[in-house]
Lab assay of single mutants.
Amino acid sequence: MQRVNMIMAESPGLITICLLGYLLSAECTVFLDHENANKILNRPKRYNSGKLEEFVQGNLERECMEEKCSFEEAREVFENTERTTEFWKQYVDGDQCESNPCLNGGSCKDDINSYECWCPFGFEGKNCELDVTCNIKNGRCEQFCKNSADNKVVCSCTEGYRLAENQKSCEPAVPFPCGRVSVSQTSKLTRAETVFPDVDYVNSTEAETILDNITQSTQSFNDFTRVVGGEDAKPGQFPWQVVLNGKVDAFCGGSIVNEKWIVTAAHCVETGVKITVVAGEHNIEETEHTEQKRNVIRIIPHHNYNAAINKYNHDIALLELDEPLVLNSYVTPICIADKEYTNIFLKFGSGYVSGWGRVFHKGRSALVLQYLRVPLVDRATCLRSTKFTIYNNMFCAGFHEGGRDSCQGDSGGPHVTEVEGTSFLTGIISWGEECAMKGKYGIYTKVSRYVNWIKEKTKLT
């Protein structure tokens, strides 16, 4: 034993070699072989497995989906700052455009905790909710729209109204504003409101030439003092309507412009014939205590009207009353817009006519005020429907199939267009061939041609 100890002390290297040989010859039971080890760690190889990531292109799944990435790591994937920024906006807080917040056709661009709407022409605001041009839906104005110097929408209202708090709607500024039905039992019968379409306001006024200088022999019209197929109006439903009495009662109609003036057809009036105007009328054979009678003290036909040349060209006249009318729910003026808007309103496509005229061709006159909704007829169809001249200051309205029309005794009465609950004068009943005849239409004086003249002559002093 002493000898062994001496050998170990003198030859430590020998001992180490012996131990190493023993270990190498022993069977290893701690580690699995290569094949079995792979069965336990069965993990798919990654895209760049075996390579240094710093030297390969980034992978979106590896960089940002398996674990949260930084902007720089995302930049490695896209290799483009702009594309990385677009991805980053949604990656950080989701897609803010998912709810489609942009209105009126706006395009949404996502941002971090926010979004941006790219608005089409005519709109602005956070969600493109603000109209900035009158060309689109009248700028959301209830009545009139004008573009300011910086191309912003400025709404306005006709006389007797003021802008509401929203700067879009119009509200009454006087007790009985024009064009409004205020009798409670008839307010439910107000005709369907007309909503502004998209309009090209630059070209809204037709490029028409008034044929002022045409000389033409007097034409022989049949029954051209021209509501057939209409309905009984309720008291106060058309408070701007008046009836004219002269040699015979209810020979023509008219509309209240203001307390002192009536507008009617020029062919209705004769110099030297006494005319009485009755406002607030409903049943011409009954006294309903809503009527107001006034005498006409002055007749002003349009300066281009000449019955000797043509009885229905420039067929418009103004009547001055001896005493002002007292405005109330049964006696209310009709609204008159400017030339541009009167023309736009007419193009809405349908209007209402009213009167006490004959209820059928050569038949009896109506006792109760009649009204009828009539569609506008395109000019080409209008011209083809008659052998008589249709001037540019006239328009056609009615039904091709016949059966409904204005008729004798309705002449001078109103053709009105309702705009968001307020009625505007767009025409004056003038003439036609018979009444409600198939293929024939009622012919009306186009008020847009005469609004400046009306307003100039009827100013209240």
Rank of each mutant, 00 (worst) to 15 (best):
N313Q: 13
H282R: 08
F388D: 06
I334S: 01
Y341Q: 10
R83T: 15
N135D: 15
E433N: 14
T84A: 12
L23E: 03
C117W: 00
Q96G: 08
G363L: 07
P324D: 05
C28R: 02
C69F: 03
C117V: 01
S217K: 07
G94N: 09
G413N: 05
L14M: 09
N213L: 07
M8A: 14
K188I: 12
F345T: 01
H267M: 03
I136A: 08
V419M: 09
N393A: 05
T386R: 09
D131V: 06
A279D: 01
I256S: 01
F345A: 04
V154F: 11
G50L: 12
G398T: 04
K234A: 12
E54F: 07
E79R: 09
P197I: 06
I7C: 07
L319I: 07
T85L: 07
E231I: 12
N310A: 10
E171R: 07
G106P: 00
E159Y: 07
A26C: 11
R226P: 08
I336Y: 02
Y161L: 02
E320N: 02
V154L: 10
C382K: 02
N48T: 15
K459G: 11
N304L: 14
Q185T: 14
V278T: 12
S430M: 12
S411L: 13
Q216R: 06
R373A: 11
L325K: 00
V296Q: 00
C18N: 03
L369F: 12
W118H: 15
Q408K: 13
G442A: 14
T422V: 13
E82A: 15
L41A: 15
R298L: 03
S114R: 10
P333R: 03
I262A: 03
G50D: 14
S354K: 09
P324T: 03
S430Y: 02
E35D: 14
G106H: 01
R75F: 07
E418N: 13
D405N: 14
E73L: 06
G439V: 03
T445D: 02
K126M: 08
P324A: 13
D338N: 11
F345K: 01
M394H: 11
G106M: 01
Y22A: 13
K260N: 06
N304T: 05
V451W: 03
K152C: 04
F395I: 00
G254A: 04
T271Y: 06
K311H: 06
Y161H: 04
N38P: 12
G412E: 03
S99K: 06
F399S: 13
C97W: 02
N452K: 13
E285T: 09
R3Y: 09
E270V: 13
F144W: 02
L346F: 06
A233N: 07
I316W: 00
R180H: 10
C382D: 01
G50M: 15
D95A: 05
C119S: 01
P301M: 12
Y352C: 06
G349V: 02
G106C: 02
R75L: 12
L189P: 09
T186W: 07
I256R: 00
V257K: 02
G229D: 12
I429R: 14
Q408C: 14
Y450T: 01
S204N: 07
H400E: 14
E27H: 08
Q408R: 13
G432M: 06
L327H: 03
